[in-house]
Amino acid sequence: MDFDDQLRRYFATADLAAISPDALQAGIEQMRVDLGLEADRARRFALWSLLYMLGAGPDLDIAFKDPADRDAARDFMALVDRAAPD
């Protein structure tokens, strides 16, 4: 899953700054629906990751049944949080 492709799919643009608040909420809701329906582990992780970066990621216990996936998500969260400017 390419990041820009996902932005275009859910928000009709790859430019985050161009997304209106209403379009952002609508895209996030659609992503949550897709996350709930997605059976492929890698695609689920990619959807959850984008939701997390948008501040809308569901709790790990809800998003991932497999403990290994939850651990990978925790590692991702730590990496993103360390990369964030202070």
Rank of each mutant, 00 (worst) to 15 (best):
E29V: 09
D15T: 08
P67M: 06
R8N: 10
F64M: 05
A73W: 00
P21N: 10
K65V: 15
D69A: 14
M31C: 02
V80C: 08
G36Q: 09
A78M: 04
R9W: 04
Q25W: 03
G27S: 04
M77W: 00
M1I: 01
D15N: 12
V33T: 12
A56L: 03
G55Y: 13
E29Q: 14
F45K: 05
D75L: 11
G36D: 06
L16W: 08
G27D: 04
A63F: 03
A68N: 13
A23M: 05
A73P: 03
W48L: 00
A46M: 07
A23S: 14
F76S: 01
A73E: 00
L51S: 04
A23P: 01
A83H: 04
R32P: 01
R32M: 08
Q25H: 13
W48E: 03
D34C: 07
A39M: 12
Y52C: 03
L51R: 03
P85T: 02
S20T: 15
P21I: 06
A39N: 12
P58I: 09
D61W: 07
Y52P: 01
L54T: 01
T13K: 00
P21A: 07
D59T: 10
R82S: 03
F45I: 06
A73N: 05
E29R: 15
R44C: 05
E38M: 15
D22Q: 14
A14M: 02
V33C: 06
G57K: 08
L37I: 03
P85E: 06
K65H: 15
G57F: 06
V80A: 08
V33G: 04
M31Y: 05
P85F: 05
A12L: 07
R70P: 10
D40C: 08
E29M: 11
M1A: 10
P58H: 12
Q30K: 13
L79S: 11
